[in-house]
């Protein structure tokens, strides 16, 4: 009874062990046989046997490298795309600024209405002042004209349009501007307008001006900020030059801007 009872319990155990032991011994044998086999074959044969492993490693390395390169490439492409998008947004913003920024509507010294878009395609040097100015405005305009002449003398350069905008529209009407600008340069363009138009144009260029008290002759001096502005052919504010800059320095700077210029409006 006991044996019988144990029997069926022990047997399945044995049968479970059997397949475990059997392959082990068999495996051992095969491994040994293989080793013997290998040692008999010699180094040349080992190389042959090792070969299937070599390409596999190389393939793996190759795949890894390709995968890595692919990832790197994708990252670079994504980065380039991001940069292009950034550049596009910047160009778009600049384009909007080119049209809107620093816009004005004024009368030139021939009485014609002029706005910023009329100067598209031209480099513009712009100075704000007034015709009754004792010394600074004529000096600065003289300097501006020297810059224009220096650039004119250089062949192959885009001509620069000199512009003088009054900050004293009460006295500087079209006729006064015409009289004033002809003393400086044949192409110097005088711009004037209503008090509002001049105020708007000056605000666009951050030009401060304030008329001083009138004397017995009803004469007065207008205090104002002094700077020469450079606009590029797209109409974008590009640089400005204070009193301390010489005509040569300004001409050099304009030349550099011209060399670096790329239109964003084409």
């Amino acid at each position: 009874m006991l044996l019988l009872a144990r029997g069926p319990k022990a047997w399945p155990r044995f049968s479970l062990l059997k397949p475990l032991i059997f392959p082990w011994t068999l495996g051992n044998k095969t491994v040994c046989e293989r080793v013997q086999h290998l040692s008999v074959q010699g180094p040349a044969e080992t190389g042959k046997q090792g070969l299937p492993r070599g390409p596999r490693l190389r393939t793996r390395l190759l795949i890894t490298a390709l995968f890595g390169a692919g990832l790197g490439g994708a990252w670079l492409a994504a980065r380039a795309d991001k940069e292009r998008q950034r550049q596009r947004r910047r160009t778009e913003a600049l384009r909007q600024a080119a049209v809107g920024q620093g816009d004005f509507s004024l009368l030139d010294h021939h009485g014609q209405t002029r706005c910023k878009a009329d100067f598209r395609g031209q480099w513009v040097l712009m100075y704000f002042g007034f015709t009754h100015c004792p010394d600074i405005c004529p000096d600065e305009l003289e300097k501006l004209v020297q810059v224009v002449q220096q650039l004119e003398a250089q062949p192959g350069l885009h001509p620069v349009q000199p512009v003088f905008v009054t900050v004293d529209p009460a006295r500087d009407d079209v006729a006064a501007m015409a009289r004033y600008v002809r003393d400086f340069h044949p192409r110097l363009l005088g711009l004037t307008g209503s008090a509002e138009q001049v105020a708007q144009a000056s605000r666009s260029y951050r030009v401060y001006y304030s008329a001083g008290p009138k004397d017995e002759d009803q004469d007065y001096i207008v205090d104002h900020s002094i700077a020469i502005y450079l606009l590029n052919p797209d109409g974008l504010f590009t640089d400005y030059y204070g009193r301390g800059r010489s005509a040569e320095q300004i001409a050099d700077s304009v030349r550099q801007h011209m060399a670096a210029f790329q239109s964003i409006l084409t």
């Binding site: 004792p134 004397d215 017995e216 004469d219 007065y220 001096i221």
Partner: peptide
């Protein structure tokens, strides 16, 4: 030789 306003200006200057 100069406007009165300019004289005042140049004196201050």
């Amino acid at each position: 030789s100069c406007p009165q306003q300019w004289i005042k200006y140049f004196d201050k200057r």
